[in-house]
Design a binder for these strands. Sequence first.
DNA 1: ATAGACCCTTCAGCCACTAGAGGTTCAAGA
DNA 2: TCTTGAACCTCTAGTGGCTGAAGGGTCTAT
Lengths: 142, 142
Amino acid sequence: MLTIGALAKRTGTKVQTIRYYETIGLMPPPQRTAGGQRRYDEAELDRLAFVRHGRQLGFSLEAIRELLDLADNPAQSCAEADSIAQRQLKQVEDRIARLQVLQVELKRMICDCSHHSVAQCRVLEVLRDHSECLTDHDNIGA
Amino acid sequence: MLTIGALAKRTGTKVQTIRYYETIGLMPPPQRTAGGQRRYDEAELDRLAFVRHGRQLGFSLEAIRELLDLADNPAQSCAEADSIAQRQLKQVEDRIARLQVLQVELKRMICDCSHHSVAQCRVLEVLRDHSECLTDHDNIGA
DNA sequence: ATAGACCCTTCAGCCACTAGAGGTTCAAGA
DNA sequence: TCTTGAACCTCTAGTGGCTGAAGGGTCTAT
């Protein structure tokens, strides 16, 4: 039986995060000692590893929840798991594309700016200039 | 004089976001009509455009705040603006690299999984399997 | 028996917004 | 001048995915 700290160490998770997963119902309530401390078994370690690996791949907790449901009912077709992964891949590819646009623009900003005064600083100029704005006004934060 | 709605439209920002920027001190408190509505001029439009462009380039609001301070004091060297942009470029490049790793792994998951039953589903299998875990346990969320 | 490493709950905070409730003001048309 | 209704106002709460801290309790080795 693992303490929460041991489980945390073995999965590369913080203790608080494991408790957080429990409060949102992603991890089941584990056994407790007489004194009220959590004790975990191998099945729970597997489940947490699944969750963490999904997070590393960029899946949202909601997507992971769906995948866990699928894994719990293995009789169905895997088409749904496939489509969740497809959605995720598309998101990742979109993000890469957008970041590459930014990369180009940042490089252009930087290489033109070599320690002149702020007044002619290319970095600030580019940020100020509307005409050099990216046209995509949406989807900022992702 | 622009209403907040007009300003929002011209900068591709939501009205609430502009008010939010004001509460956190990123935008100055604007003039008000007798009835208490906000009215903006061109200088404020420029400032907001600067902020939004910075956001599109992935700068944090804190970084943008620093850049605005620099822009307000144009006598100094631009070395600092440069280094903010350098930091930002490095972050962007890190993100791209990590996303490309995920992209490869997701593609591998998907192309091996063509509508078999969940029991042999590659998507779920990959998520379950420790040995195929990414080694990088940190830096999940970014 | 005691030390101290670990665990518990609860609450607040992070970032960058976004949404909604419930009310007020403005500008254009009749 | 009056009325309509779109746009504005403040305030509060919620999002996702955690993280940190306060103020305690428990477990285990010595």
